[in-house]
């Protein structure tokens, strides 16, 4: 354990991280965001998903620093009378959950398909890649409408609230896996003719062992880079779906649905419902993207081994 920490400290990754102020700042903000989302039920002043505690009569109270604001609701309330700050924490929690979940699903499907296609080549490759092409040609909105219709048929209207998070994970996960599959396939094609693979084959290792123990680890750099970007993408997709009313149920607003519900009021002076969650979402996605950028530069062998 100690050894590995020491190894990490001496690594190029940590070295360049220490020297990159943007990366450090992004990392700190990201950690704060993750902590906030994890601790949302503990630190939020209210539970916005509990209909019992919210009162419509508190709707559209401005933030505390404005003349009509009260200290009860620090950032004001939304159009349903929920405390905006608490709702943002809970919304962030959902965004993070969906982001990570969807990326995990995408990565799992994508790696399997990409690895198989790239290593096997030939007909298997052609078939799998065409499936990926077909999947890519469906807009994820259509996939979303399609899957939610099937879900409703299977489980009925009542379970929609409990199922909406897994549902969104499946929708976004299924819609974007070809991104992984394509990238992995490309790196696998580059790796599979190298000497170490040949050596492994010569000593008689089985195909799955070569694929997963030897080839896969060498392609993981690109997976890490895409993953950061895909988390941000998934969060944005969730926001977009909820904005269109296909995502989270209205009684459990995520960041996207909060932005949507405030959008109608933005001209009539009730700007805080959209602006605060909007800033929150932009910041969250921005730091992930910045970290992703930094990671790409660091892990790109051409840039440092040269």
């Amino acid at each position: 354990m100690k050894n590995s920490i020491k190894r990490f400290k001496e690594s190029y990754l940590f070295y360049s991280f220490k020297r990159d102020k943007t990366a450090m700042a992004s990392f700190v903000i990201l950690v704060i965001f993750l902590l906030l989302s994890l601790a949302a039920p503990l630190i939020s002043p209210y539970n916005p998903y509990d209909a019992k505690t919210t009162d419509l009569m508190n709707a559209e109270i401005p933030p505390a620093f404005m003349a009509e604001g009260t200290s009860e609701f620090l950032l004001g309330t939304d159009n349903m009378g929920r405390d905006l700050l608490s709702t943002m924490f809970y919304g962030l929690r959902i965004s993070v959950l969906i982001g990570l979940g969807a990326v995990f699903l995408q990565a799992t499907i994508g790696i399997m398909v990409g690895l198989t296609a790239g290593y096997m080549g030939g007909k298997v490759d052609a078939v799998l890649m065409r499936i990926a092409d077909i999947q890519f040609s469906f807009p994820y909105l259509m996939v979303a409408i399609f899957i939610s219709a099937i879900f409703q048929l299977m489980f009925g209207i009542g379970s929609f609230e409990q199922l909406s998070v897994p549902l969104l994970v499946v929708i976004i996960g299924l819609a974007e896996w070809p991104v992984y599959a394509r990238t992995i396939r490309a790196s696998v094609m580059g790796e599979k003719n190298k000497e170490y693979v040949e050596a492994a084959r010569v000593i008689g290792l089985s195909r799955p062992v070569i694929m997963f123990r030897h080839v896969l680890p060498n392609t993981l750099t690109s997976v890490m880079v895409i993953s950061t970007i895909q988390v941000a993408n998934a969060v944005m997709s969730e926001a977009a779906l909820s904005f269109l009313g296909l995502g989270m149920p209205v009684t459990m607003p995520s960041l996207g649905s909060l932005i949507k519900s405030g959008f109608e009021y933005i001209f009539s002076g009730v700007w805080w419902i959209t602006i605060f969650p909007g800033i929150f979402l932009i910041l969250f996605v921005l730091v992930i993207n910045l970290l992703g950028d930094w990671l790409r530069d660091v892990l790109n062998p051409k840039l440092y081994k040269g």
Partner: peptide, 25 residues
């Protein structure tokens, strides 16, 4: 319409009726 339904869910929760709401076009 959607906001009204959401508000009614909120109000029914106060008499312990938990309503699962789905809105659609």
């Amino acid at each position: 319409d959607e906001k009204i339904a959401e508000a009614v869910v909120q109000m029914l929760a106060k008499i312990n009726i938990k309503v699962n709401l789905k809105t659609m076009p």
